[in-house]
């Protein structure tokens, strides 16, 4: 559980890092290049990471249920 939190935190930090970086005037950094297409990429990435994390936690709950079923038998 703690390990997952760390991984999630790291992913979040990696995502936020370029955001903080781009605070000052429009420099030629990645997120503002190519018509800011990387902003769209990061938005889709956030959605994917979020949904996958949610599915992952659901998966763990299902595993726990399977264990309970097996103990019943």
């Amino acid at each position: 559980m703690k390990k997952i939190n760390k991984i999630l935190l790291l992913a979040l930090l990696l995502l936020i890092n370029p955001l903080l970086f781009a605070q000052d005037a429009e420099m030629a950094d990645k997120m503002r290049s190519e018509g800011k297409i990387y902003v769209v990429v990061s938005i889709l990435l956030v959605i994917l990471i979020g949904l996958i994390a949610f599915v992952f936690f659901t998966d763990r709950k299902v595993s726990a249920l399977e264990k309970r079923i097996n103990e019943l038998k």
Partner: peptide, 17 residues
């Protein structure tokens, strides 16, 4: 709620740029 949280995070990224 999960989708709403994702909505607000993606909105923040968009707003930043």
């Amino acid at each position: 709620l999960v989708l709403g949280i994702l909505g607000i995070i993606t909105g923040m990224i968009w707003a930043n740029y």
